[in-house]
Design a protein around this nucleic acid. Structure first.
Lengths: 248, 248
DNA sequence: CCTGCCCGTTGATCCACGTCAACCAAAATA
DNA sequence: TATTTTGGTTGACGTGGATCAACGGGCAGG
């Protein structure tokens, strides 16, 4: 072991090569030597307290962010007050990609709990992409993944019914917790029913009712924000096919 | 004028520097000298007949495509047959970005009319991005724009009512036709009511009724797929605020 | 301990949109 | 020309989820 292990404190230099989130984050799949070249990438860290914004719609775009700890939601809002949660982000995921197109952010990123991010100055990313074979490609993959994910949400919003949407949401969360080494069957949601509803295009009451219904049916066990998945097979069936019969 | 102007035929080399869509397409904003470096970018052209696929979900990803002429829709489908149109694309717009993440396409791209695309081999794009200052950035912008667009659609699907969605759709089409030098107030839709409905998360009957209602109210004139916008101000108001009163 | 606030649950009612069905026009085919 | 097919419109009716409203539990602060 080396002496100079990066310390988790504001302002201190962060090294991707020393980070245990590397498997989930931007440098995923890069070689060891490439990884060391990336140690220049992160400009610093930033802590964001629960309910605070990492950035807001309209803010000038300067950097993208990799979540080191905690979780976020992103949302857009219309002048009339209506808003829409466009995504929930967990450790290792990248925030801020929306800002590249107009050089200013088009949504708000709000911490769902006390969190910390790595600040990746966009100019530095572009520059390093020229030098480090593999970074460019990896970054493209991250952006492309975001597009594919958004298409999935569009599918969900455009052609699924309430319970199908919630089932899809729960399975997605489960899968992402699993990827982070947590239990696939038992987890703690950091967002409120209203936020889930906004994301799924439903009212909070509908979300609550769907939770209750799933519980009645023995699909899950709900205790506040703590969720246990009891029958993922049936949950999966629910997403793709509708409860049963109905054929078409 | 030079003699060697590129000819619009299959297999013939296409040069971005000679293309009149440059303002709308990937090379937007690049300098003349950069533009000439891009003449290597396009691998060739491909004609796609109406109703035919440019690529299908699952196809291996090799290239992205710039639309030279015509228009496309992209859609995803669930095993149970439900499908969702995720977007409509016009000349100058880029198709295929979804394929980068998994190295295989995640949706279908279908021509809405006889169309032609420039094939941009992805490997060549990555390579040229290293050499041509500006191409990388421009490409990032294109991807980011797609993400922002998708968020807009999520907003629409998640928190707007039928007529608001259609109004937003019409205004968006108008704006894109304008950018291409066509009339802002009068245009021809290439897609069916069902495809519009799928995109907007509505049934075709609902789309049809909304068209009729807009016509009754003097907002638009509809004649089959030919649309004339008569009162864009009220259309815009409809999108953001709901018809009138109703407060919250 | 009590108090207040936020969040979630549940019930009753309403309505926007889906569903089902008939019909028609335009376009494709013969 | 008649004939089928495809896409669009319109009406009648049903329903999933929104809305409105009451209530309750967890938790922070006094």
């Amino acid at each position: 072991m080396r002496a100079s292990v990066p310390v988790t404190m504001n302002g201190l230099k962060t090294a991707c090569s020393q980070c245990n989130l590397v498997e989930l984050c931007l440098p995923f799949g890069m070689s060891d030597s490439e990884l060391h070249q990336l140690d220049e990438l992160v400009g610093g860290r930033r802590k964001v307290k629960r309910q605070q914004s990492l950035y807001r719609a309209g803010d000038p775009f300067e950097a993208i962010y990799a979540i080191r700890a905690g979780s976020f939601k992103t949302d857009v809002l219309l002048e009339d007050g209506r808003d829409q949660v466009t995504g929930f982000q967990m450790t290792g995921e990248i925030l801020g990609l929306d800002g590249i197109s107009t050089e200013s952010h088009s949504c708000n990123a709000v911490a769902l709990e006390d969190s910390e991010v790595c600040v990746i100055p966009y100019a530095k990313l572009e520059q390093l992409s020229h030098e480090v074979e593999g970074l460019q490609h990896q970054f493209h993959k991250v952006m492309s993944r975001e597009i594919v994910r958004d298409h999935g949400v569009m599918m969900l919003l455009g052609s699924m019914r309430a319970e199908e949407r919630l089932a899809a949401f729960l399975l997605n969360m489960s899968q992402r917790f699993t990827a982070r080494g947590f239990s696939a069957a038992e987890f703690h949601l950091r967002m409120t029913r209203e936020e889930i509803g906004s994301y799924l295009g439903l009212k909070l009451e509908t979300v609550s009712r769907a939770f209750s219904r799933f519980q009645e049916e023995g699909l899950i066990a709900v205790q506040q924000k703590h969720i246990r998945l009891l029958d993922t097979t049936r949950l999966r069936k629910l997403v793709q096919h509708q409860t049963a019969g109905c054929g078409r």
